[in-house]
Amino acid sequence: IEIKRPLYQHWAIYVGDGYVIHVTDEGASSITLSSSSICATRAKVKKELLMEVVKNHKWHVNNKYDRSRTPRPVEEIIRRAEQWVGKEVPYDVLNRNCEHFVTELRYGEAVSHQAKKAVVGGASAIVGTTLLGVAALAGIALSGSKSKT
């Protein structure tokens, strides 16, 4: 289940009877900024009603990786997810987030497109800003050398 939040997408595994299992920073230790997963270093695996997790956000079933990966049998996914409930796990927004948790359970491989996109986007922004800065400096240098002649 992909839940559309304002700045990111939250991911959970649907396990039946209206419940999902997901990784959340709520109730976990080592959180620098409460209710913001960006600074969390630990997270808690919880089983909660889908509608309580979703609140007023939009959500949909998203098995987008099924095109490139083979999902485990549903019973195995649910069994593995249930084993994590109540446990605290390491958390890192770019390397061990809720999407990584869900894809590890479903496919046996932790993948997060949004984290990858954030890293690539962040790197692009840095490169773009650097190039803009170099161009500005070059323009200043050229205008300075023209005014001296």
Rank of each mutant, 00 (worst) to 15 (best):
T32Y: 01
T32S: 07
T32F: 03
T32D: 03
L33E: 10
L33W: 09
L33Q: 08
S34Q: 06
S34D: 09
S34G: 06
S35N: 07
S35L: 05
S35A: 05
S35V: 06
S35P: 03
S35K: 06
S35H: 12
S36L: 12
S36G: 03
S36F: 06
S36D: 12
S36H: 08
S36Q: 09
S36V: 03
S37C: 13
S37D: 08
S37M: 10
I38V: 12
I38L: 11
I38D: 05
I38P: 01
C39H: 07
C39D: 12
C39L: 13
C39A: 11
C39N: 14
C39T: 10
C39M: 07
A40W: 00
A40P: 03
A40N: 01
T41W: 01
T41N: 10
T41F: 00
T41H: 05
R42A: 04
R42M: 15
R42K: 15
A43L: 02
A43C: 11
A43R: 01
A43I: 01
A43Q: 00
K44S: 01
K44M: 10
K44H: 00
K44I: 02
K44R: 10
V45G: 02
V45N: 01
V45P: 00
K46F: 04
K46P: 02
K46I: 15
K46D: 08
K46Q: 15
K47Q: 14
K47Y: 07
K47C: 13
E48P: 04
E48G: 04
L49E: 03
L49T: 02
L49R: 12
L49I: 03
L49D: 01
L50G: 01
L50Q: 04
L50W: 01
L50K: 03
M51P: 00
M51W: 00
M51D: 14
M51L: 13
E52P: 01
E52M: 03
E52V: 00
V53D: 00
V53N: 02
V53R: 00
V54C: 07
V54Q: 08
K55L: 05
K55R: 07
K55A: 09
N56C: 13
N56H: 10
H57S: 15
H57Q: 08
H57K: 09
K58A: 12
K58S: 13
K58Y: 08
K58H: 13
W59P: 03
W59Q: 06
W59K: 05
H60P: 02
H60A: 12
V61A: 09
V61K: 14
V61S: 10
V61N: 06
V61T: 08
V61D: 11
N62S: 15
N62T: 04
N62M: 06
N63T: 13
N63Y: 12
N63C: 04
N63S: 12
N63I: 06
N63D: 12
K64Q: 11
K64I: 13
K64T: 14
K64A: 14
K64H: 11
Y65Q: 05
Y65F: 15
Y65C: 06
Y65L: 15
Y65T: 04
D66E: 09
D66H: 13
D66P: 11
D66W: 06
D66C: 10
